[in-house]
Nucleic acid binder design. Structure first.
Lengths: 229, 229
DNA sequence: GTGCGTGGTGACGAATTTGTGACAGACGGT
DNA sequence: ACCGTCTGTCACAAATTCGTCACCACGCAC
């Protein structure tokens, strides 16, 4: 049994449905109005989100970005419904990183099939869509860090930062680069911000704090295994 | 901006796409039919090739071998898409020398991440090769010096200095030149500064200190291997 | 051997760069 | 509205790095 959040305008409501994988049936679970789709997603953490890009008030893409911005909803696969099957839409969807999309008009059966496929698929993906380095296991989809098997809660910012460092694979990441990639390079951001977050990360890393090395005058570097002196 | 060749059968075409590394975007550049993937590769010389092993007519492995056979395409990193995550496929891919592989089913986002990682990784190797000389391995990306395998931490200044010496490849670097390139030619910098830094470098080089030779009245010279009389 | 010039050393203080703890605002959840 | 968490900033402490110096050592020419 899976939970699927449908963000649609045709029904004019947000539907949180339960999807029975075996019987291929949707069932409306809740139908609330007045709260945003993103809020629902963050609370319910569905297994899949069906997002109609042609929403009445808001832009579907911005909803998508909002979903991706939060650690809790970031890993959830999104099936996009696009009005036209034009390449532009397809590309736009891919750019954003949608996991699949269906172009209108479509038959319910097709949608069911895609949903089923996605649900099947994503469970598998989450398993190996993680980043491993030594004792570190960084789950990209869950935004969780497993340190020697133990889960460590990271905030969104911390995760972004650590992810960049880990992915750099030993390379030094310059302060500027980190500031740009994590904070979008706002000049308002004075110096100490990065340092502070690095410090908080190190705290959470416990005895593995040293894995984040500081390269004076340049930036930081992540080393998976303790440096052999 | 990078060029990525996607050899896939789902779209039934060969797609040559441009990949924007920073923004994580694909863009289809050409979609041609009737020519083989290898031909496209040889002509366009993409930065990366995404190769689906489950091609309709041909065997993905043979395509791969063909790519490796030609000097023009040999150096291009290949990201393989394998149908099943079975060990056999995985091993086969690795044996052939694939640089990475993604097992179906996968999310576009995951593929994007991997592609990005691969492009990053390989750029390091090709564009920014590290300097090697004897026991020395000077990694520019890492800002690290490996001395006979052991990492040695260098200061930013020390790194610059050593880098210049090593790159000179045995030629004498005049004091003036070094001062100018490392310190930006500040006249204020009187005599002892350079000497001091050379000394510190030598300390860190340990028993290899002699690799930095003094040429009286002129400057310094770096010799990788013990001086042949 | 002596004397001059150049390079090597160790120490020191200043400047620069990071690390830290505290704090207030923002945001979201209840 | 109340509360807890997450975040960006600050002021200040700690840690390195760096440039200079005084002084020593060595090489070379006489």
């Amino acid at each position: 049994m899976h939970t699927v959040l449908v963000v649609d305008d045709e029904t004019d409501i947000l539907e949180l449905v339960v999807f029975n994988l075996e019987r291929q049936q949707f069932k409306v679970l809740t139908a609330d109005n007045g709260i945003t789709a993103v809020q629902v997603a963050k609370e319910k953490i569905p297994d899949l989100i069906v997002l109609d890009l042609m929403l009445p008030g808001m832009d579907g893409f911005s909803v998508y970005r909002e979903l991706r911005a939060d650690p809790r909803t970031n890993g959830i696969p999104v099936l996009m419904l696009t009005a036209k099957g034009e390449v532009n839409d397809r590309i736009a969807g891919l750019e954003l990183g949608a996991d699949d999309y269906v172009t209108k008009p479509f038959s319910p059966r097709e949608l069911l099939l895609r949903v089923r496929a996605l649900l099947k698929r994503t469970r598998k993906v989450t398993v190996d869509a993680s980043l491993k380095s030594g004792d570190f296991l960084l789950e990209r989809n869950t935004l969780k860090l497993f340190l020697a098997g133990r889960p460590v809660d990271l905030t969104a910012t911390e995760f972004k930062l650590l992810r960049l460092l880990v992915e750099a694979n030993g390379e030094v990441q310059e302060r500027d680069a980190l500031l740009r990639e994590v904070w979008g390079y706002s000049d308002t951001m004075l110096t100490r911000t990065l340092d502070t977050h690095v410090k908080r990360l190190r705290e959470k890393l416990g005895k593995h704090a040293e894995c984040i090395q500081t390269v004076r005058g340049v930036g930081y570097r992540f080393v998976g295994s303790p440096t052999p002196a």
